[in-house]
Design a protein around this nucleic acid. Structure first.
Lengths: 233, 233
DNA sequence: TGTGACGTATAAGTCTGACTTTTTATGTGG
DNA sequence: CCACATAAAAAGTCAGACTTATACGTCACA
């Protein structure tokens, strides 16, 4: 699951990073490289590399004669996939899922509209294939199969938009959808209305109907907002 | 301008990072830590820290016995403020500005709608103040003053939305607006219609009219899209 | 009592060189 | 031609010494 894992450095990062994002060291806390190196039983070189990465994520700030200070949450690079993963694994997961779902509700409709203009024939085909996969797995507690096609579907939309900023949110959307299926309440089969909307969306993109694609996606994301009891804008 | 600058490590990063994002080392290129250390005349420790940071940005991948490989553009962490800055400073600045403006057109209307619901009295006051500042600087080539208030205005909207993901895009919006004023053609005074829209938006937020705030912001961002010859969705 | 210059301790920053580990290429024998 | 052993290459890790910036306390002076 964790992308980092490689090497001693990555293992330390995967421990310390989540501790910070979880609030284990509140903003303003001061860490010292030497102490951390001792605690994790690694050399200062390794520890320094870890601190540098945390610094590049704006989680901490390293200053001479002071130490490594934890920055206030508002300054964190919250779009860093690593940070997102750490926070989703931590205590304020619900809050994080809400933020990300609101983000989805802003991005995906516009992305779908662009996809309707820019999607290649191949992407259209993938889209319908994913939609069919969702239909096929929409009954009988085949949640994993449904999730798989759902994630693929939204990835194709984001990629087909032709905007790299949108495309890079594919992982985020995947995390949100997976989170909904695995953690939160979803013992029942998915909402048939949502399935229909996806089928129609694939259709709209194939037919180059940007306005309809945007409208349909707005309905989909509004459904996602309602699931989390967020009042729709 | 550059946030990194601090220390030897930061200086190397500020040279190598832009070189990579500018395509100086095409995806697939293989660098070697030792050679880089020689080239920049720094120790391997420093060079390793630089590579670690680039790796955390997904610009490169470091593998044993192979070296440091530049990753394909599609895998870069394009939301990293550092990466955004590097790319905006590079050759594909226009392309980057387009991507970011499209992103704005998706985010800001939703953020404005939320701001209308969540803004504090203080934020409403700031908003009207910024709008007045824009009006005051809208004539007579007072571009810097106008830009200052424009940036502040959009920052307040994003912060007032109450969504941290939106709030963190304040810097990006600032870069885009600054880029428009400084680099691209903007010798003339700003469009009076845009100024009016901002005044009305401040009003809508103050009056808690979410729908109107969203609609007005959509008009503003559509204007920004048209300036870059992007056909409005 | 307040204030400014100065010295000192501290923790990050840097460098060096030796050693380890992983992974790939190469070559050898079946 | 394939399987397996071997070697080489590059990153990874470690230890220790040294440098540099800077926060903070001290002391003299106004």
């Amino acid at each position: 699951m964790s992308t980092t894992g490689r090497g001693l450095h990555g293992r330390v990062l995967d421990t310390l990073g989540p501790e910070i994002t979880a609030g284990g060291y509140p903003p303003g806390s001061v860490l010292r490289t030497d102490e951390l190196a001792q605690r994790f039983d690694v050399s200062r070189s390794v520890m320094r590399e870890v601190v540098r990465v945390l610094e590049s994520m704006h989680l901490v700030e390293s200053r001479r004669r002071v130490g490594v200070t934890v920055r206030p949450t508002r300054e964190w690079n919250v779009y860093d996939p690593q940070v997102i993963r750490w926070r989703l694994a931590g205590a304020d997961r619900p809050r994080q899922l809400r933020s990300l779902t609101v983000l989805r509700s802003a991005i995906e409709p516009v992305a779908a509209g662009l996809a309707a203009r820019n999607a290649t024939a191949e992407q259209c085909a993938e889209l319908t294939e994913c939609a069919l996969g969702m239909v096929a797995n929409s009954r009988g507690h085949r949640l994993e199969g449904y999730l798989f096609h759902d994630v693929a579907f939204h990835r194709v939309i984001l990629n087909a938009s032709g905007n790299e900023m949108f495309a890079r949110l594919g992982d985020v959307v995947a995390e949100v959808l997976a989170g909904r299926t695995h953690h939160d309440v979803m013992f029942e089969d998915p909402d048939p209305a949502a399935v229909t909307l996806h089928v129609q969306l694939a259709e709209a993109v194939r037919e180059r109907d940007a306005a309809r694609a945007e409208r349909l996606t707005r309905e989909i994301t509004e459904g996602a907002l309602q699931e989390l009891d967020i009042l729709a804008p």
